[in-house]
Simulated scan of single mutants.
Amino acid sequence: MSSRILTPLAAGTLFGAGLTIGGMTDPARVRGFLDIFGDWDPTLAFVMGGAVIVMAIAWRIVPRMVEPIFAEKFHIPDRSDLTPSLIGGSALFGVGWGIAGLCPGPGLAALVIEPALAATFVVSMFAGMLILRLFERN
């Protein structure tokens, strides 16, 4: 198999394993983390903190690189990427995360652990994506 297939497969496997080990695929734990005025569970703060540290290191390395290792060019966002659609989608993401206790990555990873519960979320997520595509102005 070529690196064009193996690299994303390895990255996705590592990502899914990290989400599972970190507890991000457990909706009760996610809702506990989001319940800051109730029975707050701070454990996911460490998962997010680890992700922030990795990205902080990556943001320091990327400007020094001539080109990416596994792509033709870098795709770095800038302030012009803040559109009303992005802001509205982010708000919808947060509301959905709070209600379901899952977001796209952990939802897909949860299909392996609790397929019946995660399937409802994943089917709804894909239906929302399809509805957006049908009504999106391009």
Rank of each mutant, 00 (worst) to 15 (best):
W59D: 09
W59Y: 13
W59R: 13
W59S: 15
R60Q: 10
R60Y: 07
R60G: 03
R60D: 01
R60L: 15
I61D: 00
I61T: 02
I61H: 01
I61Y: 02
V62F: 05
V62I: 14
V62E: 08
V62A: 07
V62D: 03
V62N: 07
P63M: 04
P63S: 04
R64G: 04
R64Q: 09
R64Y: 06
M65A: 08
M65D: 01
M65V: 02
V66Y: 12
V66D: 12
V66C: 06
V66S: 13
E67H: 12
E67Y: 09
E67V: 12
P68F: 02
P68H: 03
P68Q: 04
P68R: 04
P68G: 01
P68M: 01
P68E: 00
I69D: 08
I69K: 10
I69Q: 11
I69H: 11
F70A: 12
F70E: 07
F70H: 10
F70Q: 05
F70D: 02
F70S: 05
A71H: 01
A71Y: 03
A71G: 00
E72V: 03
E72T: 08
E72D: 12
K73P: 01
K73G: 07
K73R: 15
K73N: 13
F74T: 01
H75M: 11
I76T: 10
I76P: 00
I76R: 15
I76S: 11
I76W: 13
I76D: 02
I76L: 14
P77Q: 06
P77T: 05
P77W: 09
P77S: 05
D78L: 09
D78W: 06
D78E: 12
D78F: 09
R79H: 06
R79Q: 13
R79C: 05
R79I: 13
R79K: 14
S80H: 09
S80T: 13
S80D: 09
S80V: 12
D81T: 10
D81V: 12
L82K: 06
L82Y: 14
T83Q: 02
T83Y: 08
T83L: 07
T83C: 06
T83F: 12
T83D: 00
T83A: 00
P84W: 15
P84G: 03
P84A: 03
P84M: 10
P84R: 06
P84E: 04
P84D: 04
P84V: 08
S85V: 15
S85T: 14
S85N: 11
S85E: 14
L86S: 02
L86C: 01
L86R: 14
L86H: 04
L86Y: 10
I87E: 07
I87Q: 05
I87V: 11
I87T: 04
G88M: 15
G88P: 01
G88N: 09
G88H: 08
G88Q: 09
G88K: 13
G89S: 05
G89H: 05
G89E: 02
S90I: 15
S90A: 15
S90L: 14
S90M: 14
A91H: 03
L92C: 05
L92K: 10
L92S: 04
L92I: 11
F93H: 02
F93D: 00
F93A: 04
F93Y: 01
F93E: 00
G94W: 01
